[in-house]
Nucleic acid binder design. Structure first.
Lengths: 145, 145
DNA sequence: CTCCAATGATTGCATTTTGCAAGTGATTGC
DNA sequence: GCAATCACTTGCAAAATGCAATCATTGGAG
């Protein structure tokens, strides 16, 4: 116990606690890749447009696993391959990601092609987000929750 | 023109473009203070629980103004005081902030007292967020939009 | 068997960002 | 006048980031 009084959090505010988990330029991009591109492996995340570097990716994956947003497992077919899954906690980040998408599509110079899935979700009305979350549960939570 | 080919963005993905504006540990806390605590002045932001330092605060305020999320004006009563206002773009960050709050209240060790306003918003059902945004418009957009 | 490409990382190092404390100049209240 | 207040700026150490090279292991081809 080096410092028994050290509080791990800056405050107990919900916004702050969320930002402490995913408030950086990379974490939600990893979550996005899992949700919309079906990525599960280290090399797949590396291939995204934003060009994350290997040390940052390894660091963020470890932090997201520690936070309970992702889990890491050995691929049964390839011992070398690690396979990452979203937890229920991670899947429930989708409403946040969807709102960020909506805001950016309204106010930022988004690539129309990359905006298409978000637009489709909006057209789906309420329930589209819930349906997408259900689909993610079927892929990522294999009866182990 | 030091580098005429420099693209200002890592990618045109909506999630990425949003994170480039507010994807850090501080920006959304400033927005939160304006939305829920009615803060408008530099010194008020400094007084928050998370203890932002003056140089970071000055940097983030400038970046948010440049991004179009906030505006800065001289206080008519006090020449020394700067007064910050949310733009419509900034007010429309509320759905994102509200979803972060929901997620954190479900999964993080939030302070119950600080969670109360979010819980009330949830109890208000859909429309509570829109109503809160309308209230912010009345305060921050004085007929100048 | 042996080689070799592919795997998820780690390491070293330069650059950038952050955090903290002190200080700045202008202005206001008394 | 003059101390207090205002929004910042500056200097400097520490931490995070970005980039390139490298690592140990493994699976498959020949």
């Amino acid at each position: 116990m080096e410092n028994p009084d050290a509080s791990p959090h800056r405050s107990g505010c919900p916004i702050n606690l969320g930002l402490e988990v995913f408030g950086d330029r990379w974490s939600l991009l990893i979550v996005r890749d899992m949700m919309f591109a079906g990525k599960r492996h280290f090399r797949e995340f590396l291939a995204s447009d934003e060009a994350i570097s290997t040390n940052i990716l390894a660091d963020r994956l470890a932090k997201l696993v520690e936070a309970g947003v992702l889990t890491r497992a050995d691929d049964p077919a390839h011992k070398l391959k690690a396979i990452y899954s979203l937890t229920e906690m991670g899947i429930e980040l989708l409403p946040i990601v969807a709102e960020i998408s909506r805001w950016s599509r309204k106010y930022q110079p988004v690539d129309p092609e990359l905006a298409a899935t978000g637009e489709a979700r909006d057209r789906g009305g309420p329930g589209a987000v819930a349906a997408q979350m259900e689909a993610l549960r079927r892929v990522h939570l294999n009866g182990e929750n």
